[in-house]
Structure formats: C-alpha cells, structure tokens
Nucleic acid binder design. Structure first.
Lengths: 106, 106
DNA sequence: TATATTTGCAACCATTCGGTTTCACAACTA
DNA sequence: TAGTTGTGAAACCGAATGGTTGCAAATATA
C-alpha cells in the first residue's frame, strides 16, 4: 500500500486530525472526542499518519501524545510550487491586460 | 464516493497526469503514451479528475483535449495556508534563537 | 460506402479503505 | 492486590480503488 503525504491527507477525518494536533499534541482518546467515530477508528488513522511520517508520538506514562510533523507538510508545498508559478503567471498576464485596457481608455 | 481535490491528487498517476496537462492540453491517447498503463485506465483517472473539477475538456472533432483547472489547485494552497503560518513562525523563533546566540557570543 | 481511429463505458477482479467489535496488555489507582 | 483506564492490534465487513478486457458510438479517411 502507498504511504505518502498525499495518501495521508486524502481522507477528511485525517485532515481534521492533522488540524487538531497541529495546534497542540493530543492523546488518541482526546482526538476521538472530537469526532463521531470510535477511538479505534481514530487509532487506525493515526497509524496511517505515522506510516506517512506526518505524525510523531511521545509516550507519557500510559498516554501517548500525538503531534504534527510539520516538516512533512512542506512536501505538499514543494509539490505545489510548480503550479503556483503557473497561476501567478496567469495573474501577471491578466494584470497586463487590465493595465493595457486602462491605458487605452485614457 | 468522495470527490474533492485531495482525493484527486491522492494517486501518483493522477499527479503525473496533472503535471503533464498543466503545461499543455492533451488527448487521452497522448497522455497514455507517457505511462505503462492502458488508455482505459488513464481514461478512468481523467473521469475522476473531471469529477473533482481538477480538469476541463475541449472537444475538437473526435479528439478531446484535457487541460488543468488551475484554480482548483489553489484550494490545496489555501488549506496549506494555516500550516504555512506554523512553520514560518517556527522559523522566526529559530531565527531569534540564532540571533540571541550570536549576540551573546560577542 | 467501407474501414480505421479516438474515445467513453460496462463488466469483472484483486486489493485497499474506513469502519466496527473484540481482545490483550501495560500503567495508573483504590 | 483488584479493578479501572489508555492504547494498539486482529478479525471481519461493505464499499471504493485501480487495473484489465471487450464493446459501442462518433468522427475521420480510403
């Protein structure tokens, strides 16, 4: 099975988990309280997120605190970089058109 | 079934297709030439990408040219925005630490 | 008109996904 | 020590995924 960032963020529940633990580290139970699914389902998502290296654990007694591996999120940003160049270029072209229109109006 | 941008970019073949047609519009056959899979498999991916509104079609005789709906890619960028704030803040904090270390050294 | 090309769609298949219930185990606590 | 709490893992299930082959329809070409 595929285990990369894009697979990690594909599921909406996982994206919500990511958003939660980005703010502060949380235990599986605490995370599960925020959703309509069982703790075990959340546990499965955490397992997948761990395999994708999007999440890190910190044991504290019998509790395990999960937190976001923010560096991994940068991979998405890097992938987007090429496309960002495209839409920024389109914006520049639009800007040029608007500028020309304005100029001709005068 | 879920049909959003994140589902669209979850598959590596689809990401490759997106990268291809971002540069220029292409027909399914032309796209399939770049992969080891069948034309029909590519066609299925294009169907999913269309349902995710990541791709638009333009009929030209019996050929159909597919191109990227770049605006949809911005949705990913917008989602990343919140997390970008986090890692930029971390960078600033690191910068402050380095600055303090440098200052103390003098 | 007869044939070839481009494409989408349906049927099928093995695998994965996302969820559930059940269980085992370690660590707190009375 | 006995019982409670926090957690992961296994077994199971229906649905979705990603691929294949075969076919039908529309357009181009001889």
């Amino acid at each position: 099975m595929r285990r990369d960032v894009f697979q990690g963020i594909a599921d909406p529940t996982r994206r919500a988990i990511i958003a939660l633990i980005a703010v502060q580290a949380m235990t599986p139970n605490a995370i599960a309280d925020n959703f309509n699914t069982s703790r075990q389902a959340v546990s499965k998502h955490l397992r997948i997120l761990t395999e994708c290296e999007l999440v890190k654990q910190e044991q504290q007694g019998r509790e395990i605190y999960y937190s976001l591996e923010i560096d991994k999120m940068k991979e998405i940003d890097q992938w987007l970089e090429a496309f960002r160049a495209i839409w920024e270029n389109q914006f520049k072209q639009l800007d040029t058109i608007l500028h020309t229109l304005k100029k001709n109006k005068k």
